[in-house]
Amino acid sequence: MYTQALNNLDIDTTGDDAALEARFQARVDDEQRIEPNDWMPEAYRKTLVRQIAQHAHSEIVGMLPEGNWITRAPSLRRKAALLAKVQDEGGHGLYLYAAAETLGKSREEMVEELLSGKAKYSSIFNYPTLTWADIGAIGWLVDGAAIMNQIPLCRCSYGPYSRAMIRVCKEESFHQRQGYELMLSLAKGTPEQKEMAQDALNRWWWPSLMMFGPPDGESIHSGKSMAWKIKRFSNDDLRQKFIDATVPQAHFLGLELPDPDLKFNEETGHWEVGEIDWEEFQQVVAGNGPCNRQRIKQRRTAHENGAWVREAATAYADKRRARKAAAAAAEAKEAA
């Protein structure tokens, strides 16, 4: 899972001490990891918090479209695999929130921003999962695209994030293989199953390409992120890598990519895709996708329905602490 976070950075470097910044940049250039207690430019901190939080939110919202199919998975093996996958995503969310917290923002604050609509998450999850084949397509394409984006993040200059990404990438690559294997079993299955697989590819292909963000010419603020080694490759480079890896996989499945302009360029050795509908991308990012409102409402409902549980847990912890303190005081009094 991934976000378009890299493309809408809010950078303000005014007021930072030039010498400190020079030393910081030298460390980054030297491929050293920046750790939570190290000095860092405020804009670097802000950029990272936003990116990591958006990444965490994407994991959490991403649990919903896939969660749709846990109860309807067609075999016990598939059911266990999907449940474990969605659980992994919850785990990713948890340690990404923890990584962001090392930069000084609380999880409560981040969750609040997700629920209020202030924070973004990956737009891909604003598309619906209509059939079982969508579970395969998400694993294969969405997790596949996520991996392309995330492998470079394993070398991100910020230590806690890069370490989190190493673990996330391992699990994502397992999910990706699982998704492809699911697609394969459908593609080699009954005509109805193959049709299901084709339909899922038709619907998920273009949104997956959009996951890499706008074309390089329109991607703002990439420069600073590159210099800080938060971002290491351009959107278009990563997108092309994904296309080149995925097109042959689709052919192996015997499925057709929903792009009449798709062709192989013998000279460059790359697959070239047709025009991406950036208007659709902008609309979905802006909140007008098929499921934007639904997803956030579901998150809000879960949060609101769980409020009494969280309050109870806090109240109980307080009581316990108070009782312990009282017991210790009584003991001390007795000893005296």
Partner: peptide, 26 residues
């Protein structure tokens, strides 16, 4: 228990309930 996935009162419980569900399905 698997019906809870993604809807639990806190993230830790999403994970815990899925864990129990996975054990039981296994």
């Amino acid at each position: 228990l698997s019906e809870w996935t993604g809807h639990a009162p806190m993230l830790e419980e999403d994970i815990a309930l899925a864990n129990v569900a996975l054990d039981l399905i296994g």
